[in-house]
């Protein structure tokens, strides 16, 4: 069984619209997939068990619900407005944006897979795992807690990578930056300048005894790896 809501086609333009989409199985953490061509995406948490979707001056959004996932995507090629989503605290996210200010997520716990082409990505006070990429914008991630034994990855082409991790994170860091600088509050074990014939700087090392791999990559941006509570 599958439900589809179309926003902004029926009700016209100029009014903010909000709909509520329940997860079919609220006992399991759900997945919200959202993509936007020309608008920002904001995801916050609320106490309810459903997903609330609000669009500004709506110009056509489709919201589909299937089992434990909700998919929000623009209809047609037209201009989209900004997208605001409220989810239960434990929700996994798959977010993609092309133009616009970018993606902002706060307080969500789950597997977060987030990418923006021209906007920035800001994940504040999140938990679980993060795989995030900003091609031209800045990537800022503050992780409150990380899932044990799960790999993560952060990358940009031109923007700064600024990631704050819990002080006790146990992981194998892999940091590669071609033209930009690398700064870390964590002592990244033996800072190895690898011999492989690839341009740029490459550091690998175990932090707090080692664990799953956490990758940090950039070409032109700086990479800052911060320890929560320092400074």
């Amino acid at each position: 069984m599958r439900w589809i809501w179309i926003l902004g086609l029926v009700c016209g333009v100029g009014w903010a619209e909000r709909i509520s989409v329940p997860f079919r199985d609220p006992s399991r953490p759900g997945l919200v997939k959202a993509s936007a061509l020309n608008g920002s995406i904001t995801v916050q948490t609320h106490a309810g068990k459903e997903v609330l979707v609000e669009v500004g001056a709506a110009k056509g959004w489709a919201v589909e619900e299937e089992g434990s996932s909700v998919r929000i995507s623009p209809v047609g090629q037209g201009k989209n407005s900004d997208l605001q989503i409220w989810v239960p605290e434990r929700t996994s996210l798959n977010l993609r944006s092309v133009n616009g200010r970018g993606i902002f997520v706060e307080n969500v716990e789950g597997d977060l897979d987030v990418e923006s082409v021209n906007g920035s990505v800001n994940l504040n006070n999140v938990s679980g795992t993060v795989v995030a990429h900003a091609l031209n914008g800045k990537l800022t991630v503050r992780l409150k807690q990380v899932s044990r034994d799960k790999p993560m990855s952060f990358s940009t082409l031109n923007g700064t990578v600024d990631v704050t991790l819990p002080p006790d994170v146990a992981a194998n860091f892999q940091v590669r930056n071609v033209w930009g600088e690398i700064r870390s509050d964590f002592a990244i074990g033996t800072a190895v300048e690898t011999k492989q014939p690839r341009p740029g700087k490459m550091l690998t090392g175990r932090v707090n005894g080692g664990g799953p791999e956490i990758s940090f990559r950039s070409m032109n941006g700086s990479i800052y790896i911060r320890k929560a509570g320092v400074r």
Partner: peptide, 12 residues
């Protein structure tokens, strides 16, 4: 896997 983190693990 649906989760990107799980796919990273698969690559590893």
């Amino acid at each position: 896997q649906q989760s990107a983190s799980e796919r990273l693990r698969g690559i590893r």
